[in-house]
Amino acid sequence: MKNAEEIFEILKQQFGDSIIGLDKDTPTEPIITVAPLQIHKIAAFLREAEELKFDSLMCLSGVDDANGTKVKDADGYDSIQGGTLSVYYHLDSVELRHKITLKVSSDRENPQVESVENVWRCADWHEREAFDMYGIVFLNHSDLRRILMPYDWEAGYQLRKDYKNPEFYQGMKVPY
């Protein structure tokens, strides 16, 4: 069983600059921030390493940090420019009984994160959901389609803070 600092040190030694920081000031598990385009090999290491053995991805979730600048468009709606979208990975080791949370942040305009689908198989649908709701593109994902919304949904990504619902979808009025 390892605590967050020890896990952070192990990762830092292994991956150097790809490991960006450790945030212990959280109400739940401490969060290690890593680089979005390195997450695959870090994830594979976390799963395989003898002293870590993170064999379970409990949850993978997208988050809109909404930390860009707010711009009012012509209709008076706020849209957000700049800032980041994040993905959180909640990991658990069933065998060694320790937990950790990873975080990656990527540009809002071009959010790209490496897929961990072939490290933890359950990431497949979680990543599709994050793609569906936030438009985060998971590189090397084998089947990155929308999972809940219709495939031909073109109005954007619903859980982004500046999402605006369309008037019509396939001739059906959407607002109340």
């Binding site: 809940l148 919304m149 619903q158 999402y163 619902n165 059906m172 009025k173 959407v174 607002p175 109340y176």
Partner: peptide, 15 residues
């Protein structure tokens, strides 16, 4: 879901 249900049809009689 009448207000925030971005994915919900607001009444089947629309279809």
């Amino acid at each position: 879901y009448w207000e925030h249900g971005y994915h919900v049809l607001k009444g089947i009689d629309r279809v």
